[in-house]
Design a protein around this nucleic acid. Structure first.
Length: 423
RNA sequence: GGAGAGAUGGCAGAGCGGCUAAAUGCGUCGGAUUGUAAAUCCGAUCCUUCGGGUACGGUGGUUCGAAUCCACCUCUCUCCA
């Protein structure tokens, strides 16, 4: 796509900026979309599954894009897949996954919403974000009416040519009718959102391209409306790793799923080659500044990583958490001191006073999954208590190990994972 | 509907009566190096009350002894119709 052409209207700011920051992958019709922006605020949506009670870094790029979309004078809709989650997206999966219950879906949705509140402004103004839930229209659908209105526009011939369908068919793996309907339902969401809220654009991960296009087609055929789609690129690290692992687990955006310290560390440990790109994607610093920081050579690039970590923290966890995590990192890695802002885990009541085995302590702190793992860690020289290497696998942790200031014992697995086990 | 092949640790994939808690690779976790980076190198990699206990799709059986042999069941794949 070209950014050379003069974009005389402020609304096109979004596409220009999104492109420059690296959010754009594919677009169904750049010219048409530019015109739409020129005509006034555009309403766009991104759909989110409710399969977990938090979103993770993999979702962050498109949340940032929604935020940019709003800041550049448009109205974003976050669509919760309360209805579609009951079906489960079959694309890219080889087997059907177990269906979630209503209770779990509702709980997941509540967890996910807390994240959006940090990034978007929800209100009734022309650019105020809207929270939608496709359960609102999917659950009340009348089967016959739906088939007559929507079903007739879908060609099974075409649907069987889709990658995931063909794969399932060729491998003779069961593809239930339920799953087969997912793309119809998702396409229908777009139609419904365009009717209810005037949504003209759907954005999403590049894996959603097919679903998005289906929705656009549907809108054109049934309502004769012109709809647009655009996707964000798949995110990987420079060395080719899929992004989003930290301290042994997914990098959740919710603080109750991943501590502020670990979240900060995730960004702080970004690969050199990714610094500039990630700054543009995950912070709101001016592009020139991102580029400058990302181009630093050698150890100087660490400054960029600190900025990235701090800024990403600000957006995802808030100012106070960002400062605290940065401080905790500085004391932990700089001075070797113990920061009170390291992740805290409560030890079983009275356990430390009574004397707690190291192995149990590490497991309790979540630094190891089993005692055998702790033994291996000790054998490998990676276990530390208050900074001292553990040599004896039967060592007892007692009240004497509890630091007066933090009221906890600092346990470390390797050089980067630290937990304060609170007595 | 007919004929074959297969199901092994987080994954891929050897093993085909005892030496097999099960080769090798990937992944993961430590260590070294370094800049809390990447790359590289080294080590570890079921649980345990440290006696043992679980484990090679499921259930029985043969055997002193089975992931390995037999029967049935479940699922998957390939070829033919």
């Amino acid at each position: 796509m070209s950014t050379e052409q003069p974009l005389s209207h402020a609304q096109s700011l979004f596409l220009k900026e999104a492109f420059a920051r690296g959010y754009l992958h594919q677009c169904t019709d750049v010219e048409g979309l530019n015109k739409a922006f020129a005509a006034g605020p555009v309403t766009a949506y991104i759909g989110y599954d409710c399969t977990a009670d938090s979103l993770h870094v993999g979702h962050l790029m498109n949340i940032m894009m929604l935020r940019l979309f709003q800041r550049t004078g448009n109205r974003p809709i976050t669509l919760m897949g309360g209805g579609t989650t009951k079906i489960g997206d079959p694309s890219d999966k080889n087997e059907a996954r177990p269906l979630l219950t209503d209770e779990i879906i509702a709980a997941n949705m509540a967890g996910i919403r807390t994240i959006f509140d940090r990034f978007l402004r929800y209100d009734d103004s022309p650019t105020g974000a809207i929270m939608a839930n496709n359960a609102d229209w999917l659950e009340g659908l009348n089967y016959i009416d739906f088939l007559r209105e929507v079903g007739r526009h879908f060609s099974v011939n075409a649907m069987t040519k889709m990658d995931f369908v063909r794969r399932r068919l060729e491998n003779e793996q069961n593809l239930s009718f339920l799953e087969f309907n997912y793309m119809i339902i998702q396409g229908y969401d777009f139609l419904e959102l365009s009717r209810r809220h005037g949504a003209a654009l759907q954005m999403g991960g590049s894996d959603q391209w097919g679903n998005i296009v289906q929705g656009i087609e549907l809108g054109r055929r049934i309502d004769g409306t012109e709809l647009f789609g655009l996707t964000v690129p798949l995110l990987a690290t420079a060395s080719g790793q899929k992004m989003g692992k930290s301290a042994g687990g997914a990098v959740w955006l919710n603080a109750d799923k991943l501590s502020d310290f670990d979240f900060y560390q995730f960004w702080r440990n970004t690969e050199d080659a990714d610094v500039g790109r990630f700054l543009k994607l995950f912070t709101e610093l001016p592009i020139e500044e991102c580029d400058a920081l990302g181009q630093a050579e050698g150890a100087a690039i660490n400054e960029g990583k600190k900025v990235l970590a701090l800024e990403a923290m600000r957006l995802c966890r808030g100012e106070a958490a960002a400062e605290a995590a940065a401080g905790a990192a500085a004391t932990t890695f700089g001075g070797g001191g113990v920061s009170a802002d390291l992740p805290r885990v409560q030890a079983p009541a009275g356990a430390i006073e009574a004397g707690m085995g190291v192995q149990d302590a590490f497991v309790a702190a979540g630094l190891a999954a089993s005692k055998g793992e702790v033994k291996r860690l000790i054998k490998g020289g990676g276990a530390r208590i208050n900074g001292d290497k553990v040599e004896d696998e039967d060592l007892q942790i007692t009240a004497a190990d509890v630091d007066a200031d933090t009221g906890a014992v600092k346990l470390s697995s390797g050089k980067k994972k630290h937990v304060l086990l609170v007595a």
